[in-house]
């Protein structure tokens, strides 16, 4: 949809970010800078990434958390200068790209839907995936 020139220009107005890799289903802590009057402070927001949307400068992601039984969703622009850093708290595997179904579930039930993967398991999983892909290619 967007032309090459448009992407090139978008790249010019975007600060490079070195976030750790995160995907839909991961639990992340976003350190977001907010202004209160003339004071600035950093507010962490922790929750599950339920959506990553858009590309280039338009890229955003949505983090959902539950506090005191009330669901809260925050949409962050991926390249926002107010994001100080992002930490990956938990690596989770989800079977779809948008986790809107979590909105209907509560507490434990929602957690059960996302398979947690320990960091040390991740590497071997990726290796397995790659091997499977290679085998498939050879068969073809």
């Amino acid at each position: 949809m967007s032309s090459e020139l448009l992407r090139k220009i978008e790249g010019r107005y975007v600060q490079k970010k070195n976030y750790p890799h995160f995907d839909v289903g991961y639990t992340v802590r976003v350190h977001y800078r907010i202004k209160e009057g003339d004071k600035e402070r950093v507010q962490p927001f922790e929750g599950v990434v339920i959506r990553i949307k858009g590309s280039g400068a338009n890229k955003t992601f949505t983090v959902r958390r539950e506090s005191f039984g009330v669901g809260i969703e925050r949409i962050f622009p991926y390249y926002s200068p107010n994001i100080e850093k992002i930490e990956v708290v938990k690596i989770g595997k989800a079977r779809r790209a948008k986790l809107y179904f979590l909105r209907e579930l509560k507490g434990k039930e929602a957690q059960r839907k996302i398979k947690e993967i320990k960091p040390w398991e991740l590497e071997s999983m990726q290796k397995k995936k790659e091997q499977a892909r290679k085998e498939r290619e050879q068969q073809e």
Binding site: L6, R33, A57
Partner: peptide, 12 residues
């Protein structure tokens, strides 16, 4: 016209 996008300011 090439298309639309957005630019960010220092305050976000």
């Amino acid at each position: 016209k090439v298309g639309m996008t957005r630019v960010l300011l220092k305050d976000g």
